[in-house]
């Protein structure tokens, strides 16, 4: 069962559950549209990792920034990204958030503080440091959160950015979703430490490991880190141990030589939605009420996207320069 909330009301927890469900259903819809051939390219769904997205973003204000990764739909939704326009972007439509230039791997909605999914692994961390630098100079108490995976913690950009944020005490939260695999390369083989949070020590910053399937645990850890950042005490590293229930990208099997079906099933027992349902002692009626709203919202997004106009060829040459 998920951790009891210290700072969260039951109503708030219901909202968080609702957002997690929205992410789950969005991802399922994206998967469906991909399989139907309506979404091209690459789609990396975050099913299984919803508690990370919602746990973090529920501890932020609209004015705070997030920067995310190729597996960023969940973070986007949790930060309040406009859903219809996001789905339209996945389908490459003219009114998509990125005008059909970015696609699934580059969703951004600056209007809600979503500064982009960044598909070069680790590229978003130096940017987060720079946003933190701007926020520090600005002095309005904003923070930047950068999501990344276990794989990205081996990039030089992680280490350079942690160091920059630490020496300048920048208001940046490094949130590592350790889902165990960089595509098919297990974290035990790729990474020299057991807990990625231990790497914070090298930068004299706090590093904690939390249960990434537990939305309350993620929220509490983020809240602490945000408070620290707003107080001018610098960056924190949070590692959430989580799991993707699907393959790395579409077309990948959910399990294969790199991980067993048993392992996937074991993690599925700790599905973040199930854990939160137990915590909230949700009745069947409770669940159905959530389900219906979300189903309708996703159908509407899918309809909106499918009925949206195609991007014009001329638009391919727009926005190269400001």
């Amino acid at each position: 069962m998920a951790k009891k909330a210290k700072s969260l009301t039951k109503k708030r927890l219901h909202e968080m559950y609702h957002d997690m469900l929205r992410i789950r259903r969005f991802e399922e819809k994206a998967d469906e549209l991909f399989m139907a051939g309506l979404i091209k390219g690459a789609v990396h769904v975050s099913i299984g990792q919803e508690a990370c997205s919602v746990g973090v973003c529920s501890a932020l204000n609209r004015e705070d920034a997030i920067l995310t990764t190729h597996r960023g739909h969940g973070h986007s939704i949790a930060k309040g990204t406009r859903l219809n326009e996001m789905m339209a972007e996945l389908l490459g439509k003219a009114n998509g958030l990125c005008r059909a230039k970015g696609g699934s791997m580059h969703i951004a909605d600056i209007s809600v503080g979503h500064y982009g999914a960044h598909s070069i692994v680790g590229a978003n961390m130096p940017m987060a440091a720079g946003m933190g630098l701007a926020y520090q100079i600005e002095g309005k108490g904003q923070v930047a959160v950068v999501f990344f995976g276990d794989g990205a913690s081996n990039q030089g950009s992680f280490h350079e950015s942690m160091n920059l944020c630490a020496i300048w005490k920048l208001p940046v939260i490094f949130f590592c979703e350790n889902n165990g695999y960089a595509v098919s390369f297990g974290v035990g083989r790729s990474t020299a430490v057991e807990d990625i949070s231990a790497r914070a020590q090298g930068y004299n910053a706090p590093g904690v490991t939390v249960d990434g399937m537990d939305v309350v645990a993620v929220h509490e850890a983020t809240r602490e880190a945000v408070e620290r950042a707003r107080n001018g005490d610098g960056p924190s590293l949070i590692e959430a141990k989580t799991y993707r229930f699907f393959g790395h990208s579409r077309g990948d099997p959910h399990f294969g030589p790199y991980r067993t079906e048993e392992e996937v099933n074991e993690w599925r027992k700790r599905d973040p939605l199930l854990l939160t349902e137990k915590l909230l002692k949700m009745s069947k009626t409770d669940k159905e009420a959530h389900q219906k709203d979300v189903r309708d919202e996703m159908e509407a997004a899918s309809e909106f996207a499918q009925n949206s106009p195609k991007a014009t060829l001329e638009s391919a040459l727009e926005d190269v320069y400001a």
Binding site: P126, A128, A144, S157
Partner: peptide, 22 residues
Amino acid sequence: RDTPISELGFVGAGVGAAMAGY
């Protein structure tokens, strides 16, 4: 600001600061 010798980090930070309006 002087930066540490980490070009990837501080050029990337420049991109981020520009994203935030600097």
